[in-house]
């Protein structure tokens, strides 16, 4: 077994430049008697923001966890940046990152220590410079030497996002990135994510309950209900199909089982 003592970034070349950021085909996850995800297929195009919507228990988190390789599918196929998951996880994990409410940053470590550890895990070149850059971007400079557990909810979210961007990922998986944040901080974070996507050409899969956020950020929306996909299109096409002015109204229609306007 080879021991690699150098800290070069491990970023293999893309298998195909045109491959979608994420391709999910006939994906299912069954836990004993519960079918958490039921035969879903969708694509996240490169360079875009795709929203994953659905009520609690719709299967969003399970879907994201399967895409990340944290949960093994019962059936179906996933390709991330052209690599089969979970078989080729090692090839792709250095090129993606995520932020989720079901994981925390170690609270006793300072922000700088946390970012240093994750930077080294991702073999980030010029790590000190990258941390300084992220600290400036996320307004964290004055907190860098404070224990992560002593930060406010908004500051913790900014640190989690700084960690999610530390390796300049080509694909970001975000599960409720602005949950529990005040409107000002949430808006600030959305702007930052949009700027990052434009600058890097990154792709984002965003699970959110905030419909205004989805309308603002996403160029495509996948709506899930009880483990299945209810709809998959651009926000404007979906709103037109349901004859609604906002995605929030569409969400309520789907959640309460009201048929689409065009089909009724």
């Amino acid at each position: 077994m080879a021991i690699d003592r150098h800290s070069e970034p491990e970023v293999p070349a893309l298998p195909t430049a045109t491959a979608a950021a994420i391709e999910v085909a006939h994906l299912s996850k069954v836990y004993k008697a519960t079918r958490a995800v039921d035969d879903i297929s969708f694509t996240v195009p490169r360079g875009g923001v795709t929203g994953l919507l659905g009520g609690n228990g719709a299967g969003k988190t399970t879907t994201i966890a399967m895409i990340m390789g944290l949960v093994l599918p019962s059936a179906g196929r996933i390709r991330v940046l052209g690599c089969a998951m979970p078989e080729q996880r090692a090839d792709v994990l250095g090129r993606i990152n995520f932020e989720s409410p079901y994981v925390d940053m170690p609270s006793r470590l300072t922000v700088r220590q946390n970012l240093t550890v994750f930077g080294k895990l991702y073999a980030v070149p010029d790590l000190a410079g990258r941390i300084a850059e992220l600290a400036a971007d996320f307004d964290l400079t004055e907190f860098l030497d404070r224990a992560s557990g002593k930060l406010s909810a908004g500051q913790k979210t900014r640190v989690a996002l700084a960690k999610a961007l530390i390796n300049r990922p080509e694909l970001l998986l975000l599960d409720e990135p602005t949950a529990s944040l005040d409107p000002d901080t949430a808006d600030w974070i959305r702007s930052h994510l949009e700027r990052y996507r434009k600058q890097r050409g990154a792709s984002i899969l965003l699970a959110s309950h905030n419909m205004l956020e989805v309308e603002r950020m996403c160029d495509r929306v996948v709506i899930m209900k009880r483990g299945r996909i209810e709809d998959d299109d651009t926000p404007s096409a979906i709103m037109a199909r349901y004859n609604r002015a906002t995605l929030e109204e569409v969400f309520l229609d789907v959640a309460r089982g009201r048929a689409r306007d065009a089909e009724s």
């Binding site: 021991i3 006793r108 470590l109």
Partner: peptide, 22 residues
């Protein structure tokens, strides 16, 4: 175990550093 692409010392040292900080 993912031996295939070798073991990277920088990742092992990152984890040791994490526990040392702790």
């Amino acid at each position: 175990l993912e031996f295939g692409r070798g073991i990277a010392w920088h990742r092992i040292s990152a984890m040791v550093m994490r526990y040392w900080y702790l």
